[in-house]
């Protein structure tokens, strides 16, 4: 099962990397929001899922007992919470940016 964990964690690291690069490179605040709102959600979800799988088979007292199952369920709670909370936070900050008057970057405006 270790290979599954390695695949999940490497995928999560890739999406985190893409989100960070996007955060640095995109031209305005609204486009940066796309990078963090999606890349961080999927990256965190994949990494946490991979760790839950690893913990299920190697955690506790040698794996696959009550303690390891409970800890894995808790880790999956974190993943579900990130899945629900991240789009909501993205939406809230986006609306705050619109209300406080950050000017959106457009292709025509840059010419």
């Amino acid at each position: 099962m270790e290979i599954v964990t390695i695949i999940f964690v490497l995928g999560g690291l890739f999406f985190f990397f893409a989100a960070s690069i996007g955060l640095l490179r995109f031209p305005d605040f609204y486009a940066r929001m796309h990078a963090t709102g999606k890349g961080d959600t999927l990256g965190g979800f994949l990494i946490i899922l991979g760790l839950a799988v690893y913990n299920l088979f190697h955690g506790g007292h040698g794996g696959f007992d009550l303690a390891s199952i409970l800890t894995s369920v808790k880790i999956i709670f974190i993943a579900v919470f990130i899945f629900l909370a991240n789009p909501t936070a993205t939406h809230a900050v986006f609306k705050a940016g619109l209300d406080s008057g950050v000017v959106p970057w457009t292709k025509e405006g840059s010419k």
């Binding site: 999406f15 893409a18 989100a19 996007g22 990078a35 999606k38 890349g39």
Partner: peptide, 12 residues
Amino acid sequence: IILANLHVARLA
């Protein structure tokens, strides 16, 4: 979501 992330990653 995976499609979306690949799209945004390619753009970034």
